[in-house]
């Protein structure tokens, strides 16, 4: 992997690429399409205007972001915790794998949005149902990666540890767990972005705030400007989340490497 350094050329490229993107959008919406779809300027204007000052629905944009983030974070962390435990156990013990693998593999392809009717019946219309949907998104990705991570640990390491007299649980904690950290982190990152993408589905269960709600309310009123503002906000926050995550991971993985 080549080392990445920040430089002027990269910055210029970023500016050019975003400018081209907004330029195409601007030109594209000047013609016939413009009557139905707003160009970038009104969207950015609405975005800035509602960020702290103006309101969409009952709150400012930043409050909507906070609501959505809170839901996503709670669901994400619960899902990650359950997923890591289940995934590692499945990778480590063939018996546990035999029990849970078939169930997990059937549940995994079912998208959160298809769970909405069931979660309303089981959990209701409150916050819990929204968190449950986000939990599902996070749980599936993390379990999958922890499972394959723990399963793909080089058997030679395990044999070596066994030869040196390590017990089963000792092998789990000193060999399997450290070796599965990189794939788990990869899973955590994908899970974070997929949780963030699930917020829209989650807020389809009755809500009156959140970025998903902004888009849903926009859809209900044919307010393309509001929809695009919501999309822009989801994109920006998602971008920030993955950047932060990459930084954290870089740090933890460096620790991981030095330990090995």
């Amino acid at each position: 992997m080549k080392k990445k350094t920040f430089n002027i050329a990269e910055l210029i490229c970023a500016v050019i690429s975003l400018a081209v993107f907004f330029g195409i959008w601007h030109l594209g919406t000047r013609g016939e399409l413009g009557k139905l779809m707003p160009g970038p300027l009104p969207v950015i204007e609405k975005f800035l205007q509602t960020l702290f000052g103006g309101k969409i629905g009952s709150s400012t944009l930043i409050v909507h972001v906070a609501y959505s983030l809170a839901r996503v974070m709670i669901g994400y962390f619960i899902g990650a915790a359950v997923g890591i435990v289940l995934g590692l156990s499945m990778g480590w013990s063939p018996l546990i794998e035999a029990i849970f693998a078939p169930l997990f593999r059937i549940i995994r392809p079912i998208p959160p949005i298809a769970w909405i009717p069931i979660s309303i019946i089981w959990i209701g219309l409150g916050e819990d149902a929204k968190i449950f949907l986000i939990f599902l998104a996070s749980f599936c990705y993390v379990t999958q990666n922890a499972w394959s991570g723990a399963k793909n640990v080089n058997p030679e390491y395990m044999n070596a540890a066994r030869m040196l007299g390590a017990g089963k649980s000792r092998i789990l904690f000193t060999v399997v767990l450290p070796a599965s950290i990189p794939p788990i982190f990869a899973g955590l990152q994908v899970a974070l972005s997929s949780c963030w993408a699930t917020v829209l589905a989650a807020e389809m269960v009755r809500s009156s705030e959140g970025l998903g709600w902004i888009i849903i309310a926009g859809m209900n009123n044919n307010d393309m400007n509001q929809i695009m503002t919501g999309i822009l906000a989801i994109g920006l926050v998602g971008m920030m989340l993955s950047t932060i995550f990459r930084k954290v991971e870089a740090r933890l993985c460096r620790w991981n490497r030095s330990e090995n």
């Binding site: 009717p117 309303i120 019946i121 209701g124 219309l125 009755r206 009156s208 209900n220």
Partner: peptide, 18 residues
């Protein structure tokens, strides 16, 4: 008063006892 988007959503909430 619990506001929901449309008739089917009301049905769902009724069935779920919400």
């Amino acid at each position: 008063i619990v506001t929901l988007a449309n008739g089917p959503a009301l049905n769902e909430a009724l069935n779920a006892g919400e």
